[in-house]
Write a protein that binds this DNA or RNA. Structure first.
Length: 482
DNA sequence: TTTTGAGTTGTTCGA
DNA sequence: GTCGAACAACTCAAA
């Protein structure tokens, strides 16, 4: 009994439940990736994520070929028809995949499952990307959680997730491979090459993901609870894009953290403390994002809190453009936006700062920020992106209180105290002293002259004044009160 | 049904 | 410089 395994956001061989099931049969296994952007609704992959996907598919194809198999590729507008065609030409009777949780994917996958079964094929899906299914966790009254702490408490109270599956050594190949497109033909790479910064920063693929995790556990885990907030330090794991594309699974992370901490603890008996580690909690936030997306599928477009539908957003295009291009005149904001543009990633602390700035200082609808992130992040993930932006805007689950407006100057001073991060991404300010690096407009004239900075020339004047913008945001938020 | 305690990440002001 | 209170009221989750 041959099996088609339809790979999507599970681009790995280890701990892949659908692949494990496919191999449990006796027949050939045909790994398939379908590029079907028109089926993704308004959230087809952005440019940076497409770049990542290209290289991730290349890595997976290499890994599969080393195991006697291959990765079959096709571009299509109808994934269901394509799967049927592939199954027929390979003589396969089963199609298996790991679930996705985006609203458009849920609808499409359900229709495909029905269609395949009507055609007499076996079709089954598995959980390959979450510790718990979104429908497994419920409040006492049976509803979905909207507050993180009780959600995660319940998650931790359940038995540990299953041990991850080992990667197979060999995959039985079909006698004849159905036709496949070349990776290049999927057209994932940009026609104008802007990806230099991405190439310098990232190495997509399953092997790189595991290396990164283990390096982080050895060198970064201990300091993580505080270092994670410092954009000037390599304090975070940088696993987000790997997690998004499933080059590593949360179960693997959960398990590796457990083993690492227990090994370091020298066998002092069963120790559950590692489950409370801040790094593990961050995996919990990813789970929470998927929980919310599943139960509130309209939230990528609509605020969860209905009152925010009448928020008086403003929309000066030049403010949005200044933010996108890192020309707001606030160094920590501009550094973040340029890091994003250049490397396809931004430090989490800085994501909060730039998001707060767009929404509260510029009063621009969070959806514009979510869209920009979607296009420019290699780790763009509908669940995390939606949750993060709604949190900042105050309109989401467990949202920041309205009066929490990040001050980009004090945030810079606090988390990038000697300006290392700003100097790296905003080099025109590099020669300013620490005293003024986060507020160049306040620097004495001779200081600016010596640093070679003319505001409005080398570096912009601030596009809004912090205190005035803060008051305007509070006033706008006050209009929602009833 | 009602009550109670709690809720990721902050800022400002005045003593 | 440091510290505590105010910034509002609301909603959620559980008892």
């Amino acid at each position: 009994m041959s099996t088609v395994i339809w790979l999507r956001q599970d681009l790995r061989l280890a701990d892949n439940p659908a692949l494990g099931q496919a191999l449990a049969g006796s027949g050939a296994v045909i790994p398939v990736y379908l590029h079907a952007p028109r089926e993704e609704g308004p959230w087809a992959l952005g440019g940076a994520a497409q770049w990542w996907l290209h290289h991730s598919l290349a890595a997976l194809q290499t890994d599969l070929r080393a195991r006697g198999s291959d990765l079959l590729l096709r571009a299509t507008a109808d994934s269901g028809a394509e799967l049927l065609d592939i199954a027929r030409s390979a003589g396969a009777t089963r199609v298996l995949w790991n679930r996705r949780y985006e609203p458009s994917a849920i609808a499409r996958d359900a229709a495909i499952k029905t269609r395949l079964r009507q055609q007499g094929l076996e079709a089954e899906s598995y959980n390959g990307s979450l510790l718990r299914e979104p429908w497994e966790l419920k409040t006492k009254t049976g509803g979905p959680y909207q507050v993180f702490t009780p959600f995660w408490r319940q998650c931790l109270s359940l038995s540990d997730p299953a041990e991850p599956l080992a990667a197979p050594h060999r995959l039985p190949a079909p006698q004849r491979w159905p036709r496949s497109a070349s990776l290049k033909e999927l057209g994932l790479l940009p026609s104008v090459d802007w990806a230099q910064g991405l190439r310098e920063t990232w190495e997509p693929g399953e092997a790189a993901a595991l290396t990164r995790l283990r390096t982080f556990l050895r060198h970064g885990l201990q300091a993580y609870p505080t270092a994670r907030d410092r954009p000037d330090l390599p304090g975070t794991s940088c696993l987000s894009p790997y997690l998004h594309f499933g080059e590593i699974s949360p179960r693997q992370i959960w398990n590796e953290v457990r083993l690492h901490v227990l090994a370091a603890g020298g066998g002092r008996g069963p120790d559950q403390a590692w489950r409370e580690h801040r790094f593990v909690t961050e995996i919990g936030w990813r789970e929470f994002g998927y929980h919310l997306l599943y139960h509130f599928p309209e939230t990528p477009q609509q605020p969860l809190r209905p009152a925010y539908a009448r928020f008086p957003w403003s929309s000066p295009a030049f403010h949005l453009r200044a933010w996108q291009h890192g020309r707001t005149g606030y160094p920590i904001v501009d550094a973040g936006m340029r890091q994003l543009w250049s490397s396809g990633w931004m430090h989490n602390r800085v994501r909060m700062i730039v998001a707060s700035f767009l929404v509260k200082h510029l009063l621009i609808d969070w959806i514009h920020g979510a869209r920009w992130f979607w296009d420019t992040l290699v780790d763009a993930d509908l669940a995390s992106n939606t949750k993060g932006w709604q949190w900042t805007a105050g309109c989401g689950a467990d949202a920041a209180p309205y009066f929490r407006i990040f001050n980009p100057i004090s945030q810079g001073r606090k988390f990038d105290a000697d300006g290392t991060y700003v100097r790296r991404w905003v080099p025109e300010l590099a020669r300013l002293s620490n005293d003024w690096i986060h507020e160049p407009w306040a620097a004495p004239d001779n200081e600016l002259r010596q640093a070679g900075v003319r505001l409005g020339h080398e570096y912009p004047e601030p596009i809004v004044t912090h205190a005035a913008a803060r008051n305007a945001a509070l006033a706008a938020l006050a209009t929602l009160k009833n």
